[in-house]
């Protein structure tokens, strides 16, 4: 091996080493940048969510002490009903077992807390779950939660669409005997939207993962038929 070739070789080795070093540095910087991107993305998510979250809420008249639902009746057994006005199974529950619930209330057997949660916002283009729940708060303020809830289920829009408009929500309220102007301004000012958020959060905290969820004295009821509800209330009342 000639010395000149040796020099060429060693020069090449040095060049290669320098190139390797350059590549290594670039890789390190790319990794640093990527980590920064991921961390910043997470922080953005957190701050966006904190910005969306309301800190204070006003519960409507007739709400329970924790402000997580609207109370009907004053019987010894407490029944919690978690419902979303966009949820087809909730409509079905109302139609099949709603009358039974009302009978149990008027017979003085139960105290029912209706929790109008907004779980299904992603199934409408206008956050219908939140809008209808906030509207039900306005109805509760007028003392007509149950009447309004039933009317909302009767007129339940299909999932995936725009839901009912604010005008329609007002018309339905007027149809149940609620003062149109008061309801309309309550709805349009979003008076009970923070309350809806509170109701929804507390439901999630209580590990309610689906709607409808029926609790009788805190225990989930699997059989939501009129007989199932009656049996659960009887068992709890004993």
């Amino acid at each position: 091996m000639s010395s000149r070739k040796g020099q060429r070789d060693s020069a090449r080795v040095v060049r290669e080493q320098l190139a390797r070093e350059r590549r290594r540095k670039r890789t390190v910087w790319a990794s640093v940048a990527a980590v920064a991107v991921l961390v910043i993305a997470g922080l953005i998510g957190w701050s966006v969510f904190s910005g969306q979250r309301s800190t204070e809420f006003t519960a409507p008249t007739g709400a329970n002490e924790a402000g997580t639902g609207v109370v009907s009746g004053s019987g010894p057994v407490t029944v919690d009903v978690y419902e979303d006005f966009l949820c087809p199974a909730c409509k079905q529950f109302e139609q099949v077992s709603g009358a039974t619930i009302d009978q149990l209330i008027s017979a003085g057997k139960v105290r029912v807390v209706h929790h109008p949660v907004a779980y299904l916002n992603r199934f409408s283009t206008t956050q219908y779950s939140t809008r209808s729940s906030a509207a039900s708060g306005c109805a509760a303020e007028g003392g007509r939660y149950r009447e309004y809830a039933k009317a909302l289920f009767e007129r339940q829009p299909p999932e995936g669409g725009a839901g009912l408009s604010d005008d329609e929500l007002v018309d339905i309220a007027a149809g149940t005997g609620i003062d149109r102007d008061g309801f309309s301004s309550c709805l349009r000012e979003g008076t009970f939207k923070p309350w809806t958020e509170h109701v929804t959060e507390e439901a999630s905290k209580a590990n309610v993962t689906g709607t409808p969820t029926i609790l009788v004295d805190g225990r989930p009821v699997a059989d939501r038929s009129p007989e199932g509800i009656r049996a659960a209330v009887e068992a709890a009342g004993r």
């Binding site: 990527a34 991921l38 993305a41 997470g42 922080l43 953005i44 998510g45 957190w46 966006v48 969510f49």
Partner: peptide, 17 residues
């Protein structure tokens, strides 16, 4: 809620990378 708020953005960032 913190994890739930951060996660979608981290997922989008991972997708972009």
């Amino acid at each position: 809620t913190v994890i739930g708020a951060a996660l979608p953005f981290v997922e989008l960032a991972l997708g972009a990378l």
